[in-house]
Computed example of a mutant assay.
Amino acid sequence: MLKKHFYITACLLLLLSACAPAQDVNECVNATPYNFLGGLWHGVIAPISFVISLFKEEVAIYAVNNTGGWYDFGFLIGAGVFLGGGSRAAKKRK
């Protein structure tokens, strides 16, 4: 029953996110792009940034102006470290 509610909630959030306003990328770009360490930091603070972004439009979770793959890799590691990195799924169930 819990899985059913999770999937319904996820679908509703996906539908609602389609209504989000788009912002021109040129407005987000500044002189220095974020690199691996910036991605790592943004991954660690992603849950906090998400909650703040619900109330403030100027806050985003992911930096548009980044160096590409290295930023993405850092973001993924940072988010994984904060969210447990899948270690909970690897535990044996009793």
Results as ranks from 00 to 15, higher is better:
residue 1 M to W: 04
residue 5 H to M: 10
residue 7 Y to E: 04
residue 9 T to L: 14
residue 9 T to Y: 10
residue 11 C to H: 02
residue 13 L to S: 08
residue 14 L to A: 12
residue 14 L to I: 07
residue 15 L to W: 09
residue 16 L to P: 07
residue 17 S to F: 12
residue 19 C to H: 08
residue 20 A to C: 04
residue 20 A to Q: 13
residue 26 N to H: 08
residue 27 E to S: 15
residue 27 E to I: 13
residue 29 V to T: 12
residue 29 V to I: 15
residue 30 N to D: 09
residue 31 A to R: 05
residue 31 A to W: 01
residue 33 P to H: 09
residue 37 L to M: 11
residue 38 G to F: 02
residue 39 G to C: 00
residue 40 L to N: 09
residue 40 L to R: 09
residue 41 W to Y: 14
residue 50 F to M: 13
residue 55 F to D: 02
residue 55 F to L: 05
residue 56 K to G: 02
residue 58 E to T: 15
residue 59 V to Q: 01
residue 59 V to G: 01
residue 59 V to M: 02
residue 61 I to H: 05
residue 62 Y to S: 00
residue 62 Y to P: 00
residue 63 A to S: 05
residue 66 N to S: 03
residue 66 N to R: 05
residue 67 T to A: 09
residue 67 T to M: 10
residue 69 G to M: 02
residue 73 F to T: 13
residue 73 F to E: 01
residue 74 G to C: 07
residue 74 G to Q: 13
residue 76 L to M: 10
residue 76 L to T: 12
residue 78 G to A: 08
residue 81 V to I: 13
residue 83 L to F: 10
residue 84 G to S: 09
residue 84 G to A: 08
residue 85 G to T: 08
residue 85 G to K: 06
residue 89 A to T: 09
residue 90 A to P: 02
residue 90 A to I: 04
residue 91 K to Q: 11
residue 93 R to N: 14
residue 94 K to M: 00
residue 94 K to F: 00
